[in-house]
Simulated assay, not measured.
Amino acid sequence: MKILSTISNVACLILLSAALFTSCKQTSDTKTTNTVKDSTNFKLYSKNVQDSFFISVQLPLAYPEQPKKKYPVVVLTDANFYYPMLAPVLQQYEQGGLLPPMILVGIGYKSFQAMDSLRQRDYLYPKAIPSDEMKAPGGGQNFYRFITGELLPYINKNYPTMSTERTLLGHSFGGYFTLYSLLEQLNTKRADFSGFVAASPSLWYNNFYLSRIPEQLKTSAVTDTLSLHLTVGQLEDPKWSVAPVNDLSSMLKTDKRLKFSSTIYTDLDHMDVGLISYIRGLQKIYNK
């Protein structure tokens, strides 16, 4: 596993996000007004979850000049927290030629507080066991079905998407959900996502339930069509965070069915890992 010292890079990216968010968001809103669905923010009710989600969509800077072109789709969990940071960075990276133009789809809740309480309901599967010391109903499967059966069809219908080029991003419980989605996709023989970025995933959940991914990958018909970027911060808990990511990485890195990469970020703790993981993960997946 590659080890990088990136604290200064993360600080710069966050400052860049804060400085550019207002101007870039205004640019995005202006360019998407009266084009596709006339809005970049909407509420979408899920029959699977039986709740509404607040969706944010950012079209690439290239869209006004190339409206008929189809673009890769990046689906972001924990959007209340990460979307305001990641959205302007993706546009800036597109403008600088560091990433290709892509459509960003953020899945959020009605408020930051709601996200903080409901992500436990939506991101974890199966139901929590006593050793988890938490109450999680195991709604991850319902949330997965919302994304694959309700959200993605809506996005495909209303936006110029490349249905074969979609990446799912998640951090912490969201990172767990990203890996669970990979497992579920293998189990159901679906092809909803071609890329997965899991930052500091909560691999300890339900007695390391996701440790079955390597075996499921071996029995799948997948060749080399899937990419996974897995990360953790070196300052995170050595036993419950760093070691499980190392163990899973050791099992996955030799499997040629998966385009796999992993990184331990030195000097970074749990909450520092998400943004830099998303950017670097997208670069590894799309800068071929």
Rank of each mutant, 00 (worst) to 15 (best):
H229I: 10
F42Y: 15
L13H: 09
K253L: 07
L203W: 09
N207F: 00
T32P: 00
Y265G: 03
S249L: 02
F196P: 00
L20Y: 12
D38G: 12
L44E: 08
Q95A: 15
Q234N: 07
P100W: 03
I129H: 06
L235V: 01
S227V: 01
H171F: 09
D132P: 00
E165F: 03
T6L: 14
Y176I: 04
M271R: 09
P153M: 12
A18M: 14
S39Q: 12
P126E: 05
V10N: 08
A243P: 02
G281Q: 03
F173S: 14
V89R: 02
A198S: 15
P101W: 09
T27K: 12
F193P: 07
Y45I: 02
Y205R: 09
L168T: 04
D51T: 10
L15K: 08
S250P: 00
P238R: 01
L186K: 01
K47Y: 13
K43N: 12
Q120T: 11
S17F: 03
L248E: 04
Y71V: 08
F193H: 05
G106S: 05
V232G: 02
S172H: 05
Y180W: 13
P64A: 13
L104E: 07
N41T: 10
P60M: 12
F112V: 13
L59R: 07
K189S: 15
L258D: 02
I14V: 14
F177V: 02
K37I: 13
I55L: 08
Q283H: 11
T231M: 05
I107T: 05
Y93L: 14
C12P: 00
S211E: 11
F54Q: 09
K127W: 01
G139M: 01
L15A: 13
G174R: 03
V74M: 05
D122C: 08
P201V: 10
N41S: 12
Y286H: 13
S262V: 03
L104F: 01
P67M: 11
T223C: 05
S52G: 04
P101R: 08
G274D: 09
